[in-house]
């Protein structure tokens, strides 16, 4: 490792983190469908097989449940499997293995065995993908005690959070918002420095309103904040980053300061991570609030095929409208 700074997109940052950690720790094993010779359908794992060989970069048969169960077995043996599920729409066969085994191995053996494993999956809409390739079901995963659910929103956070996920001694589901995989590049120093887990990132400080989001919707959230800035409205923008365990403290401290909050996510509205955040604000910060918390989300419907996906997904105008409602509340 040469600590070089690379100008990389998010998917390249994922690759950089994998490459970096595989150099550093020989117990890291990358596995999944089409991740070896092909380098992954999004090229997140390109070059790994050439660098680390067949024993550390495993092209698996096509069975997602198998990939999860296999990873659990490897993890209990002290390896650190980093498995790719090709799209979040195909993560559901892994749920039994995640809930019944990965999430509870440490607990049920009182620490005798553990599962230091990562499951990576691209997720979210907006790329005109086929059916089952555009959903955002992070809340399903965040509801599992014992599993961390981490979502980056920039190349630098993808690099630092993926390193943290791999080094974490417990299972992590790492969801990569594929709409912003190649949106823009930013300089990322390949210094092996992990970012902290279980914490929100405050991307912008402001006194008037708190905007809470994660993943690809951070893009629209920042755009809305830019627009509002021109109207002298200062937004505090919080990237949740870790869906479970959730860093309530950062959000509550911000709401205590601004008194107003809009939560933005692509996933359906009901029983989502945004609902958890809103409920916690109601429980803990009611007297700070100058207006009800607004949620800007996808609908409680099946994700439409791509011709209607822009109708489904929240956009900058939706965020601005919710902010307006919040600011005008009396």
């Amino acid at each position: 490792m040469n600590h070089e700074t690379h100008n990389v997109t998010m998917v390249e940052a994922v690759n950089l983190a994998l490459m970096s950690e595989m150099h550093r720790d020989e117990s890291v094993i990358v596995l999944g469908e089409d991740i070896g010779t092909n380098g992954g359908v999004f090229r997140a794992t390109v070059g790994l097989r050439e660098s680390f060989g067949l024993k550390r970069v495993l092209d698996t048969p096509l069975a997602e449940n198998m990939i999860a169960g296999l990873s659990i077995g490897m993890a209990t043996q002290g390896l650190k499997p980093v498995a790719e599920i090709q799209f979040m729409g195909f993560i559901f066969p892994t749920m039994e293995q995640l809930i019944c085994h990965a999430a509870r191995m440490r607990n049920r053996t009182r620490g005798r065995l553990s599962c230091p494993m990562v499951i990576r999956a691209p997720f979210g809409g907006g790329i005109h993908a086929p059916e089952h390739h555009s959903e955002s079901t992070e809340a399903l995963l965040a509801h599992i005690p014992g599993i961390r659910v981490v979502i980056p929103s920039s190349p630098a956070r993808a690099y630092g959070l993926l390193l943290a996920a791999i080094r974490n001694p417990d299972p992590v589901v790492f969801l990569e918002p594929k709409r912003i995989y190649r949106l823009s590049a930013q300089p990322v120093k390949d210094d092996g420095q992990a970012l902290p887990l279980d914490t929100c990132f405050t991307l912008r400080e402001g006194k008037d309103i708190t905007l809470v989001s994660w993943g690809a919707m951070i893009k629209e959230t920042l755009e809305a904040a830019d627009t509002l800035k021109q109207q002298d409205i200062e937004c505090e923008v919080i990237d949740v980053a870790c869906m479970n365990p959730l860093d309530h403290d950062t959000i509550l401290a911000s709401v205590a300061k601004t008194g107003r909050c809009v939560v933005i996510h692509e996933a359906p509205k009901s029983c989502a991570v945004g609902a958890e955040i809103s409920a916690t604000i109601a429980e803990r910060a009611l007297l700070s609030l100058k207006a009800p918390v607004q949620r800007v989300t996808g609908y409680d419907t099946v994700m439409p095929y791509y011709k209607l996906e822009q109708q489904y997904m929240p956009n900058t105008a939706d965020i601005l409208a919710a902010v307006q409602t919040t600011l005008e509340f009396t």
Binding site: M66, G69, L70, I72, G73, M74, A75, Q77, H101
Partner: peptide, 13 residues
Amino acid sequence: TQSLHATGVATAF
């Protein structure tokens, strides 16, 4: 479910 864990353990070996 355990059948798959055995393949993971065997893969580590």
